[in-house]
Write a protein that binds this DNA or RNA. Sequence first.
RNA 1: GGCGCAUUCGUCUAGCGGUUUAGGACACCGCCCUCUCAAGGCGGAGAUCACGGGUUCGAAUCCCGUAUGCGCUACCA
Length: 491
Amino acid sequence: MNKSVRTRFAPSPTGFPHVGNMRTALFAWLFARHEGGSFIVRIEDTDVTRKVKGAVEAILDGLRWLELDWDEGPEVGGKYGPYFQSQRLKLYHGAAERLISQGDAYYCYCSPQRLEEMRAEQVRRKQPPGYDRHCRELSAEERRQKEAEGIIPVVRFKTPLEGQTRFNDLIWGGVTFENSTIDDFVLLKSDGYPTYHLANVVDDHAMEISHVIRAEEWISSTPRHLLLYQALNLEPPQFIHHPMILGPDRVKLSKRHGAVSIIEYREQGYLPETMLNFLALIGWSLDDKTELLSRQELVDNFSLERIGKTGAIFNRDKLGWMNGVYIRGLSPEDFVQRSLPFLDKGLPLEVKRPLDIDYVRQIMPLIQERAKTLADVAELTKFFFVDELDYKKHPPIGKNMDAAASATALEASRQRLQALEMFDEASLEASLRPLAGELDLNTGQLFGTLRVASTAEVATPPLFQTMAVLGKERCLIRIKSALDRLSVLRS
RNA sequence: GGCGCAUUCGUCUAGCGGUUUAGGACACCGCCCUCUCAAGGCGGAGAUCACGGGUUCGAAUCCCGUAUGCGCUACCA
């Protein structure tokens, strides 16, 4: 009997949605969708002290942004709920009690101080750190005494002293651990919350998870989980550990490497389709050449077998390139709509809001192939919106020209443009291109001077298109002010 | 220190014993296009497949060591 595929994303609300976690979610989601199974989100809020307010919302936002829809979990519910571990405490207590009564777990009364000293001593003597099993064989009398002292115990697993635990990871193959290297880990903390180890085993079973997909850092914990499944007489799921995302220094990607939250990438103007594609390609590949894959292609082609084994550095250059590719692929109107919030946020305060949408629609096609991120859009177009240009950075003087020659060129252009009836790209070109020769300038010189005059920038979209969008009136005013600027420079 | 895992251009990767003078992408360089910047086209440089031993007629591909790196080693996940 082939059990249906059920994968889960089990984030801990102790921070914001890290791109590494989101990729784990993506892999689990892709596998579920590819197999026609279910994707479950479960919030592992068992660490009361590290809980961060708003983290659950941020995580769900991240998932929604990437459109990783979940079949069961927060907000949507499901028949295996609740999907917050803090609401499932009874289940963990039940499991812990069962293990205690079976003799597979025990109460431990050791104080944090004692544990700390023990660890320090072990490190000092270069011994493997781990619980020394001090409370493993306490007598009933000893326990009563500790209880009488008012010590609230933790519950520890009675790890078998001998034998080995092995599992077959779909990506790594067979991995074997000696039980003797695993200490008696905590199952239930003294505050009544379970540790990850217990909760994750209890829930993965209760929720009938078929494939546990998680990062490589969990490999060493897996034998503990297996031991728990065994003690509880439950059938373990299939384990899949994928490699991690690294920073440029090759260690696990973290805050000090810069942006790590998926939300930050949204704010920096990356498209969700870019992030989806890019994240999928960290550690997974389709073949020897395919780089660009749509959501549907990803779902259709995803397979666990093609996940690699080595950690991958998060390559921002490539992300930028890919985002440019996706931006260029947007329909003009879609690009406008997606850019609007960024224009609103990024344009100088002096620019009147709301923006003239028709004007924006004329502008955006001019920069669509020049933007790497949506956040670039304001900087790329601000000269279209401001009333006063500032020529301090780039004086309106053409290449190998002086102020006088530039003024002559601008004045000639001004007259020419003044007389123009149609102010579209073709008319502008028909009028200005011949002018260059008449002024004994090359086109680069004339157009360059006009470019700076009308935009105060040296790099812009094509001159005639730009001027056409700016419109006759604006262009003439700007040429006039460039002329004024030149006379200041000459005096 | 212990345990586990990994190692192909700067980076991401393809490769799963012969089709490989190791393929693609980003980044880089050059040329073309061109009014600038992009985009695009063409081309270039860049990997003795970590190292050392085997196995084999033949190894990046299989085996064993070594080195390096990473992960775990909490009443965190």
